[in-house]
Design a protein around this nucleic acid. Structure first.
Lengths: 340, 340
DNA sequence: CTGTTAGCGCCTTCAG
DNA sequence: CTGAAGGCGCTAACAG
C-alpha cells in the first residue's frame, strides 16, 4: 500500500530514525547515507505522513484560516495571498468557512481546528466569547478584519484616513451636498469598519464647515443590490446630493447601476467614490480608496510564520497598511445642474 | 496543557476506550456513562485530535482541494460551496493553491496531501502525469475543471451547448458579422473549454450559412485586460463585427470598457454576449450564458462524500449541469450603422 | 457493557 | 554517526 518510513529504512538498509533525520535535513547523518536515503525515498515515492509526524513532534505544519466567505472578492484575495506565503514555507492551509450562523456555531462548539493547527488566522468579526475560544487553542493568532484585540496580531488599514480621503476629494471638487452609502443596523456588532468610515465622513464634513443632512445617508448593506437601493433612495431626497461616498466598491457598483437606470450621467450629474479598489473598479472607471488587500493577507501570514518559528517572540499588536485615493472617471468638478 | 482523552477518562472514572466510544456515538456504552462522559468532556473543553484519531483509524476526515486561484470569482464560488457541503458532514478542507508553476511543482513533487486527505478535488487542468500522481494517492478523486479523465468523477457543463446559445442568440437578432474573443496559444494544453466554445462558434456560424472570417477572432487571454485588448483589435478590423461573443464574462467586461473608450454605444453600435454569469454581469447589464458555478462544487463534494462513505460504490464519470442564456442590456437587434 | 492490549507512522531521547 | 526504545493521542481488536 502506501509506503512508510520503515519501508524506506529497509530498502536503504538503515534504521527509521536515520531516514527521519536524513530526510528532514538534520545533522548527524553522513553525506553518503543521506544521499542514498534520499534516492531510495524518491524512487519509492515516499512522503512522510504529516499526521504522524505532527503527533510525534507536536507540530502540525498547518495553519487554520477562519473566514465568513471565500467567494467574495476581498476574502478570496486575502486567502489567496495567505496560502501563497504559507505554502512557500511548507505549511498547509486548513480552511474553515463559517458564513452561516449554523456553520459558525458548529465551528465554535466542536472546535475542529483544536490540536490540528499551529496557528490560526481569523477573517471574522469576532465576539468576545469567540475570541476567547480561539485563545484557548493556545496557538499564535492573527486577524485581518475587525479591530485590534488582545491575543491577536491584527493587520488592517486606517479606515478613518481612507474615508477622509474620499470625502475630502469630493469637497475639493466643489461638492457641498455629499451623500453617504454605508451600513444600517443589521451590521454585526463589533464590526468597526462602517462606524469608523462614517465617523470620518462626519468629521470631514464638519471640518469643511458643511452641515450633516441625515437625508443624505442610506443603508447599502455592503452589497451590490443594497448599493442600488441606497442610491435610488438618495435620488428621491427633496434635495439630492451632487456626490456620494459609498463605503465599499460593491455598493458603489450598485449605485452606478441605479444612476444608469435613472438616466443620470456620471460624473456630470452625480459623482461617486467607492472604497476597496475592487478588481472591477477599474473596469467600471470607479474612483475609489484603494486598500492593499493581498498585502494584508501576506502580512498576517508572515507574522504567524514568525510566531511559529520563534515561539518566544513578541507579535505586533496592530500593523497598519496604507490607503490611497485612485481618481478615475466617476468624479469630477461640481457643475450646475444640467438642463435635462 | 491541552486536555487529552486520558484526562477525560480519569475525570470520568472510566477507560480511554470508553470515552472514545461514548463521544463518537458508538453503541456499547450505557446511557448513564455516556451522559457523564459527555458532560465531563464538555466541562474540560476536550476535543479529540483529528491527527491522532486519523492515525489510528486511517481516516483523516479531511478533503484536499487543489486550485489554481482562490481569488478569482469562479474558483472562489466553487471552493465556497465545496466547503459548505463538506463541513456540514464534519469534514475539514485542506486548500492547496498552486497557481504558479513553482507552487505547482512543489505540490506534485512533495505531495503534501498524501496520507493527509480522504479524498481530493481538483480544479486544475491536469497533465497526464499530474493526474497519475493524484491517482497514486489512492483516494476518491473528483474534478470540476477540465474534461473527463479516468479515475476522476468530473462535474461540468456542456461548453458547446453554451457557446451555441450565445452565437445563436446573436444570429437570431439579425447579426451576420459576429466576432469571437477567446484564448490564444498561451492557454494550457488539455484545457478543452476554449476549444469547445470556439468549435461551437464555428459550427453555429456554419449552420446559419455564415462564413468564418479569421479577422473577427481575437485573443482575450480570459482576463479583463485581455478582453479590452481583444475588442480594441476587433474594432480596427477592415470590416468590424456588429456583435461579439466573449468566451468569459471577465473578457466581456474588458470589451465593454474598450467600447466605452471608443465612444461606441451598446447595444446600438455593438452587441456583446459573455459566458459565466459572473456576479457583476448583472450590474454591468451583460447578456451572458449562465453556468451553475456553486452547484458544480456542491455536486463534486457530494460525489466525494458518497465515495468516502460507501467505499465500494461506483462514482459517476461525468455529471453535466445545465447552462442557459440570460438576455440583458448588451444585446439587441442589428441596426443600420449609426450616422455618427 | 467495559477495560486491556496493541498498534497507526513518525520523532525524540538515549545509548553505543 | 547510527540504532533501539519509548511515546505522541487515539482507535481497534480482544477479553472479560
Amino acid at each position: 500500500m502506501t509506503v512508510s518510513i520503515t519501508d524506506v529504512a529497509k530498502a536503504a538498509g538503515v534504521s527509521a530514525s536515520t531516514v527521519s533525520r536524513a530526510l528532514r535535513g538534520r545533522s548527524g547523518v553522513s553525506d553518503e547515507v543521506r544521499a542514498r536515503i534520499t534516492e531510495v525515498a524518491a524512487s519509492l515515492g515516499y512522503t512522510a505522513s504529516r499526521n504522524a509526524s505532527g503527533l510525534a513532534s507536536r507540530r502540525t505544519f498547518t495553519v487554520g484560516v477562519l473566514t465568513p466567505f471565500v467567494g467574495r472578492w476581498f476574502f478570496g484575495q486575502v486567502i489567496d495571498s495567505v496560502e501563497k506565503v504559507l505554502s512557500a514555507s511548507g505549511y498547509d492551509l486548513l480552511l474553515y468557512n463559517v458564513g452561516s450562523d449554523e456553520a459558525r456555531d458548529r465551528f465554535f462548539t466542536a472546535m475542529p481546528a483544536r490540536k490540528r493547527v499551529d496557528a490560526l488566522l481569523s477573517l471574522l468579526v469576532l465576539t468576545d466569547d469567540e475570541a476567547a475560544a480561539l485563545r484557548s487553542m493556545e496557538v499564535p493568532l492573527a486577524a485581518v478584519v475587525g479591530g485590534p484585540r488582545p491575543g491577536f496580531a491584527t493587520v488592517g488599514i486606517d479606515d478613518r484616513a481612507g474615508a477622509r480621503l474620499a470625502v475630502r476629494h469630493l469637497i475639493n471638487l466643489g461638492h457641498r451636498r455629499i451623500g453617504l452609502i454605508g451600513t444600517g443596523p443589521t451590521a454585526p456588532m463589533h464590526w468597526t469598519t462602517p462606524i469608523e468610515r462614517r465617523r470620518a465622513y462626519l468629521e470631514t464634513l464638519a471640518e469643511a464647515g458643511l452641515a450633516f443632512d441625515p437625508e443624505l445617508e442610506a443603508d447599502g448593506d455592503y452589497t451590490v443590490a443594497g448599493g442600488e437601493r441606497a442610491m435610488t433612495q438618495l435620488l428621491t431626497a427633496v434635495h439630492p446630493p451632487t456626490a456620494v461616498f459609498a463605503q465599499s466598491d460593491e455598493m458603489a457598483m450598485g449605485a452606478l447601476r441605479a444612476l444608469r437606470h435613472h438616466g443620470l450621467r456620471v460624473p456630470e450629474d452625480m459623482c461617486l467614490v467607492g472604497f476597496d479598489d475592487h478588481e472591477l473598479a477599474e473596469v467600471a472607471g470607479l474612483t475609489t480608496v484603494a486598500q492593499p488587500v493581498a498585502e494584508q493577507g501576506t502580512a498576517a501570514a508572515r507574522i504567524l510564520l514568525d510566531q511559529m518559528q520563534n515561539p518566544g517572540a513578541e507579535a505586533p499588536e496592530f500593523v497598519e497598511l496604507p490607503v490611497r485615493l485612485v481618481a478615475r472617471d466617476t468624479t469630477g468638478p461640481l457643475r450646475a445642474p444640467s438642463a435635462r
